[in-house]
């Protein structure tokens, strides 16, 4: 069981990294809009501008 003395702190370090990454993402505005991304996923980008209006 002594492996836990190594693995749990390691897990906590990774957790700290995840929290840091999330804070950075929030700070850079990636979570400012919580509504549009849910819609954007269903949009195709394949509609092209009309050739001859």
């Amino acid at each position: 069981m002594s492996i836990l003395y190594f693995l749990i702190p390691l897990a906590l370090v990774i957790l700290g990294g995840a929290v840091w990454a999330f804070f950075w993402a929030v700070g850079s505005g990636q979570f400012d809009d919580l509504d549009t991304p849910a819609m954007r996923i269903v949009l195709d980008d394949d509609s092209k501008p009309a050739e001859d209006p």
């Binding site: 949009l43 509609s47 092209k48 501008p49 009309a50 209006p53």
Partner: peptide, 8 residues
């Protein structure tokens, strides 16, 4: 909007 291909 139509001519920019954004009718959707």
């Amino acid at each position: 909007i139509r001519d920019s291909g954004m009718s959707r």
